[in-house]
């Protein structure tokens, strides 16, 4: 397996992202999932039977901007709404309220995605590739359907993309089960990029890969991002991976962004107690023999069915006061970052 793209030392961005103009603007995005209730359930609920009628508020009032050629990292624990937010940005799900625009144009209109300029790479390359389809068909289907290439051009097009993601073009007629996890993720990347997107949403693209394969796929991502000038939303629970690829980072907790700012600032001087706790929780490579002390965040994530009043983090927060229990903090500027905390 070789990387076809020459090593490209893509350092931290030189031009300030703001100078390149916004690409994606999300305004007050909210997405609720209402339970599907049968008529019987509704009647039973009306008479006070224990039927779950509460909606899951997966994403609540989230606003952010992704600038052109920028990678925004999105970090959070399971259930915080990061994948839902990724799907909203990619136009796979529609928001309950709020809107999301790509250079001023809405990404969704009447429940349908309006653009092919946003593509997605999903976490599980076992589930995201059709097992009964040869990978050449998987890669060329979108471009043919949208008129980017003709059917006659498809074989050369597929061979070119396989080479660009470091696979042998001779494997084009194989099925997904004939590939390893890392190779499948390369196919998924080729499928997404074959649509010539400007924006790539990556939802945990390396979470299911071994460390040595993860490094190969991350390198491929860095190379292609630089070569194609991609704008990315990179979602991961792995703080070190996000740090590595992101220009800016957003931290989510229970459906809201609690801190967003330049990666270096968020990682070295986190302002929100949740960000601090999360960074302290990550096991560090200990090269010295010192005794290690852990500083875990106390407690667990509350249910998104009934988020706590005030600041959603207050039940677990060492700095929580009466104000935090009563009033929800808004995102407010702190240096180059924005933080939603009364005590930042």
């Amino acid at each position: 397996m070789t990387d076809i793209v020459a090593s490209n030392p893509h350092g931290p961005c030189i031009v300030a992202p703001e100078a390149r103009g916004p690409c994606i603007i999300a305004t007050s995005l909210t997405r609720r999932f209402d339970p599907h209730l049968s008529i019987g359930d509704r009647i039973a609920a009306a008479f006070g039977a224990p039927v779950e009628t509460r909606a899951v508020r997966a994403v609540t009032d989230v606003s952010f901007t992704i600038h052109r050629n920028e990678t925004l990292g999105l970090v959070g624990e399971s259930g915080c709404g990061k994948s839902t937010l990724g799907r909203l940005v990619a136009g796979i799900l529609g928001p309950t309220s709020g809107d999301i625009r790509l250079e001023g144009q809405p990404v969704m209109r009447r429940g349908r995605k309006t653009t092919t300029r946003i593509q997605t790479v999903f976490q599980d390359p076992f589930a995201s590739l059709n097992p009964r389809r040869r990978i050449d068909a998987t890669i060329s289907e979108g471009p043919i359907a949208h008129g980017l290439i003709t059917r006659a051009q498809a074989p050369a097009f597929v061979a070119d993309w396989l080479a660009r993601v470091g696979l042998d073009p001779a494997v084009a007629t194989r099925f997904p089960h004939q590939f390893s996890g890392g190779q499948r993720q390369r196919v998924a990347i080729a499928r997404a990029l074959a649509m010539k997107p400007d924006i790539l949403v990556c939802d945990e693209p390396v979470a299911s890969l071994d460390v040595s394969i993860q490094a190969q796929v991350l390198n491929l991502f860095l190379d292609l991002r630089a070569a194609l000038g991609l704008t990315c939303l990179f979602i991961s629970h792995d703080l070190s991976v996000v740090r590595h690829v992101s220009d800016r980072v957003a931290i989510m907790y229970l459906g809201r962004i609690v801190e967003i700012g330049p990666a270096a600032q968020v990682y070295t001087t986190p302002r929100h107690p949740y960000t601090q706790g999360l960074l302290d929780s990550v096991p560090k490579l200990r090269l010295d023999a010192d005794a290690v002390s852990f500083h875990p965040i106390a407690g667990e994530l509350p249910s998104p069915l009934s988020p706590p009043p005030g600041c959603a983090f207050h039940p677990r927060c060492p700095r929580a006061t009466e104000l935090c229990r009563r009033e929800r903090p808004k995102l407010a500027p702190h240096g180059a970052s924005e933080v939603a905390c009364h005590h930042a």
Binding site: M1, A215, H244, V245, A264, L285
Partner: peptide
């Protein structure tokens, strides 16, 4: 294995990868 870890590299730089699988 150690060099493959993002924590061991400068952000944004290519990681030292083990070739193959």
């Amino acid at each position: 294995l150690l060099d493959s870890l993002p924590a061991m590299a400068q952000p944004g730089q290519r990681l030292a990868q083990i070739p193959g699988s």
